[in-house]
Amino acid sequence: MEYRFSDRVSNLKPSAIREIFKYASDPEVVSLSAGNPSPDAFPAKEIAEISAEVLKNDPISVLQYSVSEGYTPLRNTLKEYMKNEHNTGSDSDDILITTGAQQIMDLCSKALINEGEVVICEAPSFIGSLNTFRSYNAKLVGVKVEPDGMSIDELENALKANPNAKLIYTIPNFQNPSGVTMSFEKRKKVYELAKKYGVLILEDNPYGDLRYSGEYVPNIKSLDTDGIVIYAGSFSKVISPGMRVAYCICPKPIFQKLVVCKQGNDVHTNIWSQYVCNEFITKYDFNAHLARLREIYTKKAEFCMNLLDKFCAPAITYHKIDGGLFIWCDLPDSIDMPTFCKKAVENKVCVVPGNAFLTDENEKCQSFRINFSTPTDEQLEKGIKILGEIANSWS
């Protein structure tokens, strides 16, 4: 039988990262490609305690259907937490609990983007979000990421050239994949441009709590007095990605449409997971847990950057980071990046080719992304040493 796929998916390709995972499953391969939290980062004991208690004393509350908007105590907790800790959210906003932050991208695309309309994205940007926008036949327009965030001049040029732009998608903190943090000055300018051109901002912030150094920078959503910012937060990097709990803070009219879309998607997010997240935030020391995560990742990030200095210079350069889970590495023009990544796989090391994160995957790219949170120190040293040997012996 000849299968006829919808126009939305006929040209979609599998995620480059997920394809690389097939190689990374080999126990002999050092995977520097994943974005998984460190195995030491999970509050497994606390999750077990919370789960045992509710399943013993009130199991139906987490096993029965629930409301699409999300577990009410968690929504209330997050409203208070985000307002008090980050000045994020107002009386004009509401909060939706979603099945991971990826679902926020999907629901926003479904609710807001018509076929052919433009989403302006950082270049590079997170492949999962790019593929979601592509699945709704959006036109992607990339804006160069500079050391302090997306280029403001390029952003305004893109807005002028694309009057049908609907969204500006940004990951302002420890951006995936570049590791760059957008300055506060640029955040204000991005907000001003969005307001000027009548475009919404989709602010994706899964890594904001994982700052190792430097000053805290307020969220773009904290500037939102005009109802133009949709904020995506997540527990994937600070509690557990497997639980699939994220949250979207957005203007109430958008919230109402996202709820309707979610009802046709998965009815509601896993209630047990939502319950665990709420109990963990309210009955355990959540800030102490975040401090422990920062300690873990600070050591791993510094160790990784020291290895890059030791084994990879001068052929491989990289961008120093103040937080997050990723380091963006650059190759000289004399080294073909796709061939380099293939050679790395042949030598049992997986990294992600940089072009996978571009709005145009055929565009020339000399960069690749590595992750340091998942591998052990021994694996990191082995993998980075191999990368350095390949690059520095290139001919």
Rank of each mutant, 00 (worst) to 15 (best):
S6M: 13
K13L: 12
P14Y: 01
S15R: 06
A24R: 04
S31Y: 02
G35I: 04
P39W: 15
K45M: 15
I50W: 14
E53L: 12
V54A: 12
I60S: 15
V62A: 07
Y71D: 05
P73Y: 08
N76F: 12
E85N: 06
T88F: 07
Q103T: 00
L107T: 06
G116Q: 06
V119E: 02
I120Y: 03
A123T: 03
F126L: 10
L130T: 08
Y136F: 14
N137C: 10
K139D: 12
K139L: 15
L140H: 06
L140R: 03
L140A: 01
V141Y: 07
P147E: 13
G149T: 08
M150F: 01
D153A: 11
N162V: 05
N164I: 12
N176Q: 13
M182S: 10
E185C: 03
K186L: 03
A194N: 10
I201Y: 09
P206A: 00
P206L: 00
Y207R: 08
S213L: 02
N219M: 07
S222F: 04
L223E: 07
D224F: 10
T225H: 00
D226K: 12
D226T: 14
I230A: 05
K237S: 08
P251Y: 04
V259P: 04
V259Q: 02
V267N: 06
N270A: 00
F280I: 15
Y284M: 03
A291Q: 11
L307C: 07
D309L: 07
C312F: 06
C312S: 13
I321S: 05
G323W: 02
P332N: 01
P332T: 06
D333L: 11
T339M: 11
F340P: 14
C341I: 02
V345H: 06
V351Q: 03
V352E: 10
F357G: 10
F357M: 10
E361S: 14
R369K: 14
I370R: 01
G383H: 01
K385P: 02
L387T: 05
W394L: 13
